[in-house]
Design a protein around this nucleic acid. Structure first.
Lengths: 148, 148
DNA sequence: TTATAATACTTAGATTGTGAAACGATTTCC
DNA sequence: GGAAATCGTTTCACAATCTAAGTATTATAA
């Protein structure tokens, strides 16, 4: 499973860091994303998320617009370029996995598929317990919500 | 699967970063570990690995001894404390997963187990392609073996 | 209505982790 | 025995992160 991520990174070309990629993936999936929710999702402090957004913005992966209703918020949306990066990486990963599994006898593939179907809802449901999915964020402070 | 890691980190208490944890896990599993092989495994440059080792050494997780045969090498071994950290995290993760899956009907659990047995050798075998399993290492240089 | 508090974000400064380059020590090869 | 390769550390610069402090906006309440 670790290899899945490695692959994703290898194919995401211009996007250096995991954090960058996760940010784009999140923004892709959440049309109402703002800086705070991003910070929570990535497991980053708000200032860090703010700078992260700024860099991604500078590099043309992201757009930032003030929310019309609450003008304190910055709404985040991917640019076409940003969307392309995520799509490409996803596709590459899928292809890689397909290659890896293509020689398995159909029965075993079926078993795997059934397992995944069982596991998906379980892992989808659980994460809330572990706060805001702070996968790659050490968070050293006393305010730490999650990691370490 | 991401959650597995999150959990491991949550329970590893005093060990802040993923890199630190992976380092200890590697050293635990490879009695002949030296700085270079660690760097390769973690996907870090040699200088970074060297510093990483120094920190872990300062914090009492690791020992470093010159190799008797080749005195250029520094052999790395975990201290009891380092071993404990890995063991504890592993156990906690296992318990967590067990809890998560305990309510599944036995048939489904069996399916998952069979899947894992199928997948394990595949993922064990593949990684070489992606160089030295550089999971969490962006590696910005031209010498980059993997990431970005 | 206006003042106070809370929220969303940004900026500033310090710390840490990383890599490249350069160096020292040791081993290998000719 | 000497050149080349290997292993590791040190030095320096840069990027990412955090905390603390500041700004702007919205919510609350007197």
């Amino acid at each position: 499973m670790r290899e899945i991520r490695t692959r994703m990174r290898q194919h995401s070309a211009a996007l250096p860091s995991v954090v960058h990629f996760r940010t784009l993936a999140y923004v892709n999936r959440h049309p109402d994303a703002d800086v705070s929710s991003l910070a929570a999702h990535i497991g980053l402090s708000l200032p860090s998320a703010s700078k992260l957004v700024q860099t991604l913005l500078d590099r043309g992966y992201l757009r930032r617009q003030p929310d019309r209703i609450d003008r304190r918020r910055s709404l985040l949306t991917p640019t076409p370029k940003g969307r392309r990066v995520v799509d490409t990486a996803r596709r590459a990963t899928r292809d890689y996995l397909a290659t890896l599994l293509q020689d398995l006898p159909p029965a075993q593939r079926a078993t795997i598929i059934r397992s995944m179907q069982t596991l998906r809802p379980i892992f989808r449901a659980e994460p809330p317990t572990s706060a805001s999915k702070p996968d790659h964020a050490p968070r050293r402070s006393k305010t730490r919500t999650t990691a370490t």
